[in-house]
Design a protein around this nucleic acid. Structure first.
Length: 204
DNA sequence: TGCCAGGCCCTCTTTAGGGCCTT
């Protein structure tokens, strides 16, 4: 783990599709940094993938081809984003998706990161047992978290994921004998079968 | 031409299939 275990970068990509191995690219990155329970920094940028995006993605995200022609290239934006995340640990909602795009885009420019990825979706499935489902928008409503903006834009989704995360940390804190939730506990929790979660939290 | 993601997790499971999530 890196030096500042209290600092976490919560990120969200908008992309041209689901799979970088099929040629999909990132078109927007949004991220916030939280330290000691507060948002202390943010990053947002559109990026030009070098080809036209589908009308489905234009509609889904509200990001148009016209907006992207004016944006900086992916390589340029991702270089700045690699500086932003530094060595912080990382979190995303369904992290396996954002991780594969982060890895792919950073591979293109020979950049890297040293932080560890954790996933708010995997944690939610273990602690929000009564939620109707674990989509980001559903969980925001389920938790009564105020949201005023457009889902499926990168910075808004990153901000909402951060609020959801802080809310879930509060729930976990109430169940353990710690003043804060250790990163190691989150990693263990993410791999614990649902029926073992109560016992795990009680043991901390 | 025709193909078109993949990790997690449950179950009527493990010699597998399918739903959930992300764009």
């Amino acid at each position: 783990m890196h030096e500042n275990a209290n600092s976490l970068v919560i990120l969200d990509f908008e992309t041209t599709g689901l799979s970088p191995t099929n040629g999909d690219r990132a078109i927007e990155i949004g991220a916030v940094r939280i330290e000691n329970g507060e948002i202390t920094d943010k990053f947002q940028s559109l990026m030009n993938p070098g080809f036209r995006i589908s009308s489905f993605i234009e509609q889904y995200t509200g990001i148009s081809n016209q907006m992207l022609t004016k944006a900086a290239a992916c390589d340029e934006v991702m270089d700045k984003f690699a500086d932003f995340i530094g060595d912080d640990n990382l979190l995303a909602h369904n992290a396996s998706f954002d991780k594969k795009f982060l890895d792919s885009e950073l591979d293109n420019i020979a950049r890297n990161y040293r932080g560890e990825f954790i996933c708010s979706l995997l944690v939610s499935r273990r602690i929000n047992l009564d939620a109707p489902n674990h989509k980001l928008g559903t969980l925001i409503r389920y938790k009564d978290i105020a949201s005023d903006g457009a889902f499926h834009r990168a910075l808004f989704d990153a901000e909402m994921t951060a609020k959801l995360w802080l809310n879930m940390l509060g729930d976990i804190e109430e169940k353990i004998n710690h003043e804060f939730v250790p990163f190691e506990l989150i990693k263990t929790l993410s791999k614990t079968p649902k029926n073992g979660v109560s016992k795990l939290l009680a043991a901390w």
